[in-house]
């Protein structure tokens, strides 16, 4: 019974976070729509930003201070998962290929990948550095 309640709580916070993340992505898409057959900057930046934040967030809660058990499902799985999108990325590629823009498609494919992996690596490494500095400071004090 207790397990079922915990499971329901997790599903609820994942859903809530997912809605918030998706609304943010939808709002940015309305603000900066991507014209037909042009480079999808908005989706690229949304995905890169989400990757930067998840790198910071997951290192902070797994290697830094322990967090509330619902924080990871809410923010990591929900908000960031709902904010970033793999399906739109693949659909954008399909669109660019269909619009006979193979150069843009390949640039977008590689550009998103480089930005996303670079951002998650940067977020994780930067947070680890910060945690190490804090620990050293704590030991000296």
């Amino acid at each position: 019974m207790k397990g079922a309640v915990r499971e329901a709580e997790i599903l609820a916070v994942v859903a809530l976070g997912g809605v918030l993340g998706a609304e943010a992505r939808y709002g940015l898409g309305l603000l900066w729509p991507t014209p037909v057959a042009s480079f999808p900057w908005t989706t690229l930046l949304v995905n890169a930003l989400g990757c930067l934040v998840i790198g910071v967030f997951l290192v902070a809660i797994t290697e830094g201070r322990p967090a509330h058990r619902l924080l990871r499902p809410f923010f990591g799985t929900g908000v960031l998962g709902g904010f970033t999108t793999f399906s739109t990325y693949c659909l954008d590629l399909h669109r660019l290929f269909e619009a006979h823009q193979p150069g843009l498609a390949v640039g977008y494919l590689a550009g998103t990948l480089a930005a996303a992996l670079g951002a998650v690596g940067l977020g994780a490494a930067g947070t680890r550095r910060l945690l190490a500095v804090r620990r050293a400071g704590g030991a000296a004090a």
Partner: peptide, 8 residues
Amino acid sequence: TTYSTFSY
């Protein structure tokens, strides 16, 4: 779908 978890 998610790009953030995929990257992480």
